[in-house]
Amino acid sequence: MSGRHDAAECFARRFQRLQEVIYPADLGRPYTEREIAEAVGMSVSQISNLRNGRSVPRADRAVALATLFGVRVEYFFSPDEDPYARDVERHLRAIEQQRRGEPIGQLNRAAGGSTLLVGGPAPANAGLLDDDQVRQIAEGVAVLPHDMRETVHTLVDQLRRVARQHKSREGQPR
């Protein structure tokens, strides 16, 4: 088997897994191939070829797909035993568990997000992003179309307001 064929199979398997599990709450269902294609600037047939292991995306398109699903691009090509790939899979299983109504503790909706916290209260700094995560988000936003960047900025502003409200409530005496 050629290396390119192996890469295409690995990419397809991981891509299908993300498509099955990661989707916006407002849709309540997985992305369609058309929605993915429109989000990353590809054709539906190109997305189909990726899902079926017939091709491997160019680097810029792999990055766009990774950004869409909230993972680092290496997830698509890393071996199963890679620590990052295992972490993403753990997050995906937790999302599935949450959808089934099973308790899982706190969960980051993006598959490649911060550490999953199972049970018990979250540490005080659990929601904080490190510099690499902030840089990765900024780089991902840069490749989005203008209207999508505006949506991301609005969401970030809303999250900041919620975080400030939460922080001010924590500071109040009980």
Rank of each mutant, 00 (worst) to 15 (best):
S2D: 14
R4I: 06
E9N: 11
F11W: 02
F11P: 02
L18F: 04
V21D: 04
I22G: 00
D26K: 00
D26H: 12
L27C: 08
Y31D: 02
Y31A: 03
R34M: 13
I36H: 03
S43N: 00
S45Y: 04
L50D: 04
R51G: 11
N52W: 00
R54I: 11
S55Y: 08
R58C: 10
D60S: 15
D60G: 13
A62L: 10
L68T: 05
F69V: 00
F69Q: 00
V71T: 01
E74M: 10
F77R: 09
P83M: 07
Y84V: 08
Y84A: 09
R90M: 15
H91D: 02
H91C: 07
R93H: 14
E96W: 08
E96N: 03
Q97M: 06
Q98G: 08
Q98S: 12
Q98K: 13
I104D: 05
G105H: 05
A110W: 03
V118I: 15
G120M: 08
N125W: 10
L128F: 07
L128A: 12
L129T: 04
D131M: 09
D132H: 15
Q133W: 08
R135A: 11
I137K: 06
I137C: 01
G140V: 03
V141M: 12
V141W: 03
A142H: 09
L144K: 08
D147A: 13
E150K: 11
V152A: 01
Q158M: 12
L159C: 11
R160P: 00
R161V: 15
V162M: 15
A163H: 12
Q165W: 10
Q165A: 15
S168I: 10
E170Q: 15
E170Y: 11
G171P: 05
R174K: 15
